[in-house]
């Protein structure tokens, strides 16, 4: 019989909440917040999330161009990629990457990259970390592909045609004209993806990465204080997503998404963080008698063919 069982059985006679509170030790949960392994876990979680999100966004962009390629096999390749990564569990992808890694012969060179020991932290499994990073990035790429596509395709093709008619190449038109406008559409869902990513990284604990959850599990299981340490981890996750909520609101304000296109308004940062989507805000009255909000193409009066 293990101790947990005993505790639960003993408590069954009491009020369950009282029994839980009697067992649960808040001091442990709070004091563990700044344990060295937990802090290291926070750093690992943030690094994994940032790098995977960046890589995923770049993969998503690359997939857009593959899907729009004139070369049909490229389009198939992109569709197959998206089909695969959206159609299998991320956990399976992480386990697959981890188990495939030794066969790629990358483990040994990677050990030299363990900067955490050099910084005085606990050594981590760099190869597990890399496997997690690869799986998270590839998976995120498949989801970002849809977001990037929606963003770019929302831009009137007249913008690219105008760019071309002035002598710009496709690449110039994309970089200077289409992508900057698509960014306004892409940034809000990208921010939501990153919020998810901060939490999704926790899956890598299964392959032995001491990310935030991995660290909390390790300490908790070792000291039989799993519940307390899970709360410790939750506090950190909440702190990270809350701070990110502020950063996201700032970035969006900077890109002026809401000011420029009322259709993009999705409520305040805290609503978004809690996953409440407000009704789209009504278009504000515009000064100067302008009929259309900035950034919104006026609909053609004579229905042109495109």
């Amino acid at each position: 019989m293990n101790i947990n069982r005993l505790v639960i059985q003993r408590g069954a006679a009491m009020n369950p909440i009282a029994s839980f509170l009697k067992y649960f030790n808040w001091h442990i949960a709070v004091n563990s917040l700044f344990a060295r392994l937990i802090l290291q876990g926070v750093i690992i979680t943030i690094s994994l999330a940032v790098v995977s999100q960046l890589a995923g966004t770049l993969i998503g962009l690359a997939l857009y161009f593959l899907r729009r390629s004139r070369f049909v096999p490229f389009r198939w390749l992109a569709e197959a990629y998206i089909w695969f990564f959206r159609g299998t569990p991320l956990l399976v992808q992480i386990l697959f990457a981890y188990n495939a890694l030794p066969y790629l012969g990358l483990s040994n060179p990677l050990r030299n990259l363990d900067i955490f020991t050099q910084l005085g932290f606990v050594s981590i499994y760099t190869d597990a970390m890399l496997a997690g990073l690869v799986a998270l990035s590839l998976n995120e790429g498949a989801y970002m592909a849809e977001i990037v596509r929606a963003g770019i395709d929302s831009i009137d093709i007249g913008q690219m045609e105008a760019a071309k008619s002035l002598g710009m190449t496709y690449a110039q038109g994309m970089r200077r004209i289409v992508l900057p406008q698509a960014m306004r559409v892409i940034i809000p869902p990208l921010g939501n993806e990153f919020n998810n990513m901060l939490k999704t990284t926790s899956l890598v604990y299964v392959i032995g990465v001491y990310d935030l959850l991995g660290a909390a599990k390790a300490i908790g299981d070792f000291s039989f204080r799993t519940l307390e340490l899970l709360v410790t981890a939750s506090i950190w996750y909440l702190a990270m997503t809350t701070v990110w909520g502020f950063v996201q609101a700032y970035i969006e304000r900077k890109f002026n998404a809401a000011n420029i296109d009322p259709a993009l308004r999705e409520g305040s940062w805290w609503r978004r963080m809690l996953g409440i989507r407000g009704r789209p805000a009504p278009a504000p009255a515009l000064a100067g008698g302008a009929l259309f909000a900035p950034g919104v193409e006026p609909p053609s009066i004579q229905g042109d063919r495109r």
Partner: peptide, 22 residues
């Protein structure tokens, strides 16, 4: 690049303006 070079010498004005919105 050659097509772009030649287009650079031809101005085009569209029915729907197509000004760069940003």
């Amino acid at each position: 690049s050659n097509i772009a070079r030649m287009r650079a010498q031809i101005g085009m004005v569209f029915q729907r303006f197509n000004l760069f919105a940003h």
